[in-house]
Amino acid sequence: MFGIISALLAASSWTYACFLWRQQTKWFSALQINIIKNIIAFVVFFPALLIFDFDSSFKAIFILLLSGIIGIALGDSFYITSLKIIGTRRTLTVEAFSPICATILGSVILQEMPSLKVSAGIFIVSISLLGVALHRTKSNQILEANISKMKGFAFAFLSVLCAVIAATLSRFVLTNSDLNPFQTTEIRLLGGIIGLFPFIERDLITSIKKLPSKNKSSLIKATFLGTNLGILFQQNVFRTLPLGLGWTLLSTSPVISLFVAKEEGEKLDWETLLLTTMTIFGIGIVLI
């Protein structure tokens, strides 16, 4: 039950953080936002490293650093770029493929074969989320399938791929070492910073100083919710639940993102709500 609650909390915190991060794309590039949020999050959780035995956990550290580079440095940069192009809900709904990807990787790499019931639930969730992603939701502006939109979806798919690979590495460490979620979260954040370090620009601090106070507050709030709490909850999920099942629950973000759809100028129709209901139904099958 703790893993299930952690998954829903992670999805909620990540969804709201995505909404706040998208607002910051007016001031920063996706890469700059990723750098800022990871440095802030690393500082917040830094005490977790003070009780860490580096000598006996070298292999685990290396895998987690790699997980951070792939999932945070690359994956989050792709994700925030997608947010800027196609918006919060459409970016989140591209995660329709992530439960299936996670289930396949969990089966092949971690030997976690899901039951028939869980497989059926994961399939229903994935199809429902895909339907939401492809459905042309009514909005104040007519969406056009132009090159820019295609790039947005491409970045979203790349972010999903990076995230699932990083999740597989994280679960391997959490199930084969004594490291706790706080420690693994901090090491992954360090990996993300290492991956982003070559792209840190000298004028980044100046840009942050020029940011309005309201935006600074939103940036810190989004970082704490989406990066600190989001990854911490996520690590708890990977520690307690099989990868495929855990990722299916983490993929409830599109349902939660409906609460911010109005803020982004979207009007939801009955088809979107029906597909969302199917998503909830699929999750219900997994949990029964």
Results as ranks from 00 to 15, higher is better:
174 L>W: 03
181 P>C: 02
137 T>I: 13
207 S>N: 15
4 I>Q: 05
271 E>D: 09
180 N>E: 11
55 D>G: 11
192 G>R: 01
65 L>T: 00
135 H>M: 04
182 F>I: 13
7 A>M: 13
210 K>A: 13
19 F>Y: 14
125 V>Y: 06
56 S>L: 04
19 F>I: 08
115 S>E: 07
78 F>V: 03
140 N>I: 08
227 T>P: 01
28 F>E: 04
50 L>D: 10
118 V>E: 15
41 A>M: 04
17 A>L: 05
138 K>C: 06
80 I>N: 00
7 A>W: 08
120 A>C: 06
80 I>M: 03
237 V>C: 15
172 F>C: 03
128 S>P: 14
56 S>E: 13
41 A>E: 06
93 T>R: 04
208 I>R: 11
133 A>I: 04
123 F>Q: 09
179 L>V: 07
161 L>M: 09
31 L>Y: 09
133 A>P: 00
6 S>Q: 07
112 E>V: 05
94 V>D: 05
198 P>W: 11
83 L>D: 02
29 S>N: 08
232 L>A: 11
215 N>Q: 14
243 L>G: 06
127 I>R: 14
196 L>Y: 05
162 C>N: 10
143 L>W: 11
44 V>M: 10
95 E>Q: 13
5 I>N: 06
254 P>M: 09
32 Q>F: 12
53 D>F: 05
15 T>Q: 02
123 F>I: 12
31 L>F: 10
146 N>M: 12
85 I>M: 06
24 Q>P: 02
214 K>F: 05
62 F>E: 01
178 D>R: 10
224 F>R: 04
255 V>M: 11
172 F>W: 10
86 I>W: 00
187 I>R: 06
102 A>M: 02
102 A>E: 00
188 R>F: 12
210 K>Y: 05
17 A>Y: 04
116 L>F: 05
42 F>A: 15
108 V>L: 10
94 V>T: 11
266 E>S: 14
16 Y>G: 01
82 S>W: 03
219 L>Q: 07
256 I>T: 01
288 I>C: 04
138 K>M: 12
70 I>D: 02
251 S>D: 07
248 T>V: 14
177 S>C: 07
28 F>Q: 08
206 T>H: 15
258 L>V: 03
123 F>A: 13
188 R>M: 12
24 Q>F: 02
232 L>P: 02
65 L>N: 08
232 L>Y: 08
98 S>D: 12
199 F>W: 12
274 L>F: 14
140 N>A: 08
237 V>D: 06
199 F>G: 04
181 P>G: 06
38 N>C: 13
101 C>W: 15
140 N>G: 09
236 N>W: 08
19 F>L: 09
266 E>M: 14
26 K>D: 12
100 I>M: 05
22 R>S: 06
286 V>L: 07
169 L>H: 04
75 G>H: 03
270 W>D: 07
180 N>F: 01
1 M>H: 02
201 E>I: 12
142 I>N: 04
241 L>V: 08
191 G>R: 00
179 L>F: 06
51 I>L: 15
260 V>K: 10
220 I>V: 14
99 P>V: 13
128 S>K: 09
58 F>P: 06
241 L>S: 05
186 E>G: 04
205 I>V: 15
191 G>A: 01
111 Q>H: 15
202 R>T: 12
27 W>K: 11
173 V>K: 01
166 A>H: 03
49 L>Q: 03
102 A>Q: 00
268 L>N: 09
